[in-house]
């Protein structure tokens, strides 16, 4: 079982990376990756919300949408579950530590509108996983998202110090770097073929 879970994690985090293979969450990928530390903060917040909301999505799918034939309400229902998970996280962090809330609260509103969160929830349904598999899949997908965010932020910090031709300065060099990173991640797809 552990072997299967490890394979599931590698597949979700690297081979089918949510940002560079499925092209989800590109808004935060370009917007919150100017500094490594803010990328880490956003990545961890997103990881927590995706993992928590995946549990809610799994329960809603198994006990509500499938038994009552309400599959056509899946997208709307999952958005509601995600918004609830973000609100829950915000409330809990405010309760657990007001100081933490002041430090980290900035990232939470951004997650509600991150399409990677909904994308992972819909992938869970397509995968027909059991509870632990779906939670681990969501965790690994968001870990892959965080990995890419931090890697890209590190690259952008170095590019900021480099001499870039004026034509490519700013967002253009960011997009060129992102495409090269996506090409590099395509190398992981060879793992599944061999």
């Amino acid at each position: 079982m552990i072997h299967d879970l490890i394979l599931l994690m590698v597949g979700a985090a690297l081979v089918n990376n949510v940002v560079l293979a499925r092209f989800l969450g590109l808004c935060s990928f370009m917007g919150v990756t100017t500094k490594v530390d803010t990328a880490v903060g956003m990545g961890m917040a997103t990881t927590f919300v995706i993992t928590v909301s995946s549990m809610g999505d799994w329960a809603v799918e198994k006990f509500l949408l499938v038994p009552f034939g309400l599959g056509y309400l899946r997208t709307v229902t999952f958005i509601l579950v995600i918004a609830g998970a973000v609100q829950f996280t915000e409330m809990v962090i405010r309760k657990v530590s007001p100081a933490l809330f002041q430090t980290l609260g900035i990232y939470l509103p951004l997650i509600t509108t991150n399409c990677a969160v909904l994308g992972v929830a819909l992938l869970l349904v397509a995968g027909k996983y059991n509870f632990i598999e779906s939670t681990v899949f969501a965790f690994a997908s968001s870990l892959g998202y965080s990995l890419v965010m931090v890697t890209f932020a590190g690259l952008r910090e170095r590019i900021a110090l480099a001499e870039v031709p004026p034509l490519f300065a700013g967002p253009p060099i960011g997009f060129v770097t992102a495409s090269l990173l996506a090409l590099a991640f395509m190398g992981f797809s060879g793992i599944s073929a061999n």
């Binding site: 961890m44 993992t51 933490l100």
Partner: peptide, 27 residues
């Protein structure tokens, strides 16, 4: 460093215990 410590405390710690407990139960 404080932002990283805050992130690890608020998100990392609950995630580790949550997944640890769930995987152990399934195992």
């Amino acid at each position: 460093g404080e932002l990283l410590r805050a992130s690890a405390t608020a998100y990392g710690l609950p995630l580790v215990t949550m997944l640890g407990a769930g995987i152990t139960a399934q195992f």
